[in-house]
Amino acid sequence: MRLWLSRGSEVSIRDQFVTQVVLGILSGELKAGQRLPSTRELARRFHIHPNTVSAGYRELARNHWVDFLKGSGIFVRKEKPDTPPAAAALDQLINSFFQSARELGAPLSSIRLRLRHWLGVQPPDHFLLIEPDAALAEILVSEIQTAVTLPVKSCGVATPEIEAQIVGAIPVALSMNEKAVRRALPETADLVTLHLRSPGASLAAHLPAPSTALVGVASTWPAFLKTARTMLVAAGFP
């Protein structure tokens, strides 16, 4: 079994090990029923702690990629886990890419740099609304989706949430959240800012309102009801 483990990577040795075994199984490099190297053998070969290898094998077993046979060793499971066809095809493509990169002798640092470059120049495939209020985000996503063709997703302002969805996204935020969102975004990221209209401008078509006018606002979101009431009063409704 060929492995390519980098101590300088931001990805843990265990995760590198698990991922490469899975890719080896999906690509057919590791055959069903094939015996895998022992924990001790891999630890000695790659100068890593046996506990790291053992933890990786346990994760593979939990996810039904390998079987532990008492007294015999660790074997590739004869039946692969149920993996969505698209995900399996993508994993095989990634595995082929890394195999080709190894044959070229490209260091992992160069591969990572080039991957980041190409991911950065790909056209966006979704809008990402960055909004801390989940209820407001749900309303805005629905409104934005009626005006655009790309999918619209949302997340909070916390950096980990943004990092998980920012790749391939066009970031969007309300103007009142612009400063906080820009601090959480990568420095090179662009941001589409949504500007709110004044109550008067929003309701101009309905003004002046007759003294007998009755305006009803229905929502399960208390903050929206309060805001709506404030806007109506500011626009001249009693």
Results as ranks from 00 to 15, higher is better:
residue 1 M to E: 06
residue 4 W to A: 11
residue 6 S to E: 15
residue 7 R to K: 14
residue 11 V to N: 04
residue 13 I to M: 15
residue 18 V to Y: 11
residue 18 V to L: 12
residue 19 T to W: 14
residue 21 V to T: 13
residue 23 L to H: 07
residue 26 L to P: 09
residue 27 S to F: 06
residue 31 K to F: 02
residue 33 G to A: 10
residue 33 G to W: 05
residue 34 Q to H: 06
residue 34 Q to N: 07
residue 35 R to H: 08
residue 35 R to Q: 12
residue 36 L to K: 06
residue 37 P to F: 10
residue 38 S to V: 03
residue 38 S to G: 14
residue 42 L to S: 08
residue 42 L to F: 07
residue 44 R to N: 10
residue 49 H to V: 12
residue 51 N to K: 14
residue 52 T to V: 12
residue 52 T to N: 02
residue 53 V to C: 00
residue 54 S to Y: 03
residue 54 S to K: 07
residue 56 G to R: 06
residue 56 G to E: 04
residue 58 R to L: 08
residue 59 E to K: 09
residue 63 N to W: 08
residue 65 W to V: 02
residue 69 L to Y: 08
residue 69 L to T: 08
residue 70 K to H: 14
residue 72 S to F: 15
residue 72 S to C: 14
residue 73 G to S: 09
residue 76 V to G: 11
residue 77 R to I: 08
residue 81 P to D: 03
residue 81 P to C: 09
residue 84 P to I: 13
residue 87 A to E: 13
residue 87 A to I: 15
residue 87 A to H: 09
residue 89 A to D: 13
residue 89 A to H: 08
residue 90 L to N: 10
residue 91 D to G: 14
residue 96 S to A: 15
residue 96 S to F: 08
residue 97 F to Y: 15
residue 102 R to M: 11
residue 103 E to F: 04
residue 104 L to N: 05
residue 105 G to P: 01
residue 105 G to Y: 07
residue 107 P to N: 15
residue 108 L to N: 15
residue 109 S to A: 15
residue 109 S to V: 15
residue 112 R to K: 15
residue 116 R to M: 13
residue 117 H to E: 10
residue 117 H to P: 00
residue 120 G to M: 04
residue 120 G to S: 09
residue 121 V to G: 11
residue 122 Q to L: 14
residue 123 P to Y: 12
residue 123 P to L: 10
residue 125 D to R: 05
residue 126 H to P: 00
residue 129 L to W: 01
residue 129 L to G: 01
residue 130 I to A: 01
residue 130 I to M: 01
residue 132 P to M: 11
residue 133 D to C: 07
residue 135 A to E: 10
residue 141 V to C: 10
residue 142 S to L: 02
residue 144 I to T: 09
residue 144 I to S: 05
residue 146 T to P: 00
residue 146 T to M: 03
residue 149 T to H: 08
residue 149 T to C: 02
residue 151 P to Y: 12
residue 151 P to S: 13
residue 152 V to L: 00
residue 152 V to I: 02
residue 153 K to N: 02
residue 153 K to H: 02
residue 154 S to G: 01
residue 154 S to M: 01
residue 155 C to H: 01
residue 156 G to E: 01
residue 161 E to Q: 12
residue 161 E to I: 04
residue 164 A to C: 04
residue 164 A to G: 08
residue 165 Q to A: 05
residue 169 A to C: 03
residue 172 V to Y: 03
residue 175 S to G: 05
residue 176 M to G: 01
residue 176 M to H: 10
residue 178 E to L: 00
residue 187 E to I: 09
residue 188 T to M: 05
residue 193 T to G: 02
residue 194 L to I: 04
residue 196 L to T: 04
residue 197 R to Y: 07
residue 197 R to K: 14
residue 202 S to W: 04
residue 203 L to A: 07
residue 203 L to W: 05
residue 204 A to S: 05
residue 204 A to V: 08
residue 205 A to N: 03
residue 205 A to H: 04
residue 206 H to L: 12
residue 207 L to P: 02
residue 207 L to F: 11
residue 207 L to Y: 11
residue 207 L to E: 12
residue 209 A to G: 08
residue 211 S to F: 12
residue 213 A to F: 04
residue 213 A to M: 10
residue 213 A to T: 11
residue 214 L to Q: 15
residue 214 L to N: 15
residue 215 V to T: 11
residue 218 A to V: 15
residue 219 S to K: 06
residue 221 W to T: 02
residue 223 A to F: 01
residue 227 T to N: 06
residue 229 R to L: 11
residue 230 T to A: 05
residue 232 L to M: 07
residue 233 V to G: 02
residue 234 A to F: 03
residue 236 G to T: 14
residue 237 F to M: 11
